[in-house]
Design a protein around this nucleic acid. Structure first.
Ligand SMILES: [Mn+2]
Ligand SMILES: [Mn+2]
Ligand SMILES: [Mn+2]
Ligand SMILES: [Mn+2]
Lengths: 220, 220
DNA sequence: AAAAATTTTTAGATTTACCTAAAAATAAAT
DNA sequence: ATTTATTTTTAGGTAAATCTAAAAATTTTT
């Protein structure tokens, strides 16, 4: 039986490993809101259980077993988020914290039935892919809005920032999942991006654009 | 913020208090699967937080505040059970353990929306009443099947035993919530009860009959 | 009303997940 | 190649929830 805390560590390490191969102690500490010394303690425990490979001072990587466990938690997190949005009418900026709790409920049966009840969704309210029961999922092929050139277009299919403030902001701008956009200009001065969405011309800061993920129609 | 453990103690004390006014240390220990010494420690903590009234060697009673907290957990437990049965097609004997975990999820918003999603159910899959958001609920007026006399009838509206074994047994006998029954005989030898249900005559042990709750039609 | 049995509490440890402060290792800058 | 800065680990401690063994209070029996 894996503890609530162990599960959180595994998930955080998994997400950090998407960026850098070797995950550092301080990075984990920051994410998990704890001190580096505590992280070292927990890492030793996870290594003891063969969930991570650990070389002193060199950071950690998840073992196959650890990766499986982490993906399983990610699966639960995202399925619960779908449930909250699709069935309980939560907004996409309101679901993360509750899902953080729900993802630790233990029953396998529960999550399989929930998956079925939701119609086996492929992605969560933020466009992130939902692993199937074997932990498999298609690697998403999104590009950042900031990588588009003037004249390029595509569909908003994800976000790389899940803070409530950011998501609320996008909602207000009408930049939700599925919307078609086209880049009409990029301001030299501050790098802000002018885009065309649902017939309107709007300007968004580079900071915002950076976290909007686009799937191009393959036409560019 | 109340811990998982504190919540479990409050709920157990609440349920025990339905039987006896002053709840004893050993009774709590048995229910919570721990040792009396541990219970004493926790009781002191709960008393410190004004959740229970405690007199050494005299057991505990919930304060108004403690009762509120306990009823809130019971509400969550029962709503989740309804969700599992109505939406995820769990059987009534499969839901208790998962609900034990789900009842500790913290968001108030979540539970209000879940309540609405389920259509504000008044009772759970075992016939137990679901408190509303203010903790109010009608006191159920069931009688035990064993209290019926020969010729008396009524509707099965609850059970006072939630073990999977018991519930599966009832299911097999066709004794589920809502079924009309009538007592046709009581065996002198072992006190077993012969009942008429959906046209069939069946015999159930006194032990089983004791845990079946009946609402009479007021005709007796 | 004493003695015996039961229940409850205290005392002292253990485990898990943290912490702070200081030491050790690694990386970056001069 | 040293020195300096940063990162990571160790050492030693704390709080929550548990435990065992023993003491104290209460209840039951004689
Ligand atoms: Mn999330
Ligand atoms: Mn998400
Ligand atoms: Mn239950
Ligand atoms: Mn129930």
């Amino acid at each position: 039986m894996r503890s609530f805390t162990e599960e959180n560590y595994l998930k955080i390490i998994y997400h950090l490993a998407e960026k850098t191969n070797n995950v550092q102690t301080n990075a984990i500490a920051e994410q998990i809101q704890t001190k580096p010394a505590s992280v070292t303690d927990m890492i030793k425990k996870l290594a003891e259980k063969d969930l991570v490979d650990y070389v002193k001072y060199q950071g950690v990587t998840l073992t196959e077993k650890g990766k499986q466990a982490a993906v399983d938690i990610v699966r639960k997190h995202r399925l619960w988020e779908v449930f909250l949005v699709d069935k309980l009418n939560f907004k996409w900026d309101e679901v993360h914290d509750v899902a953080e709790e729900l993802e630790h409920i233990k029953s396998v049966d529960l999550i399989e039935r929930l998956d079925e009840f939701l119609g086996f969704p492929k992605s969560d309210p933020h466009g992130d892919p939902i692993p199937d029961k074997h932990g498999r999922f298609a690697k998403t092929q999104f590009i950042k809005l900031t990588e588009l050139k003037i004249g390029d277009g595509g569909t908003i299919t994800g976000v790389s920032q899940h803070s409530s403030a950011f998501l609320k902001h996008l909602e207000k701008l009408g930049l939700t999942l599925g919307k078609q956009i086209e880049v009409s200009d990029v301001t030299d001065f501050d790098g802000s991006v002018e885009i065309l969405v649902t017939g309107k011309q709007i300007n968004i800061s580079r900071e915002v654009a950076k976290h909007i993920l686009i799937s191009t129609n393959g036409k560019n």
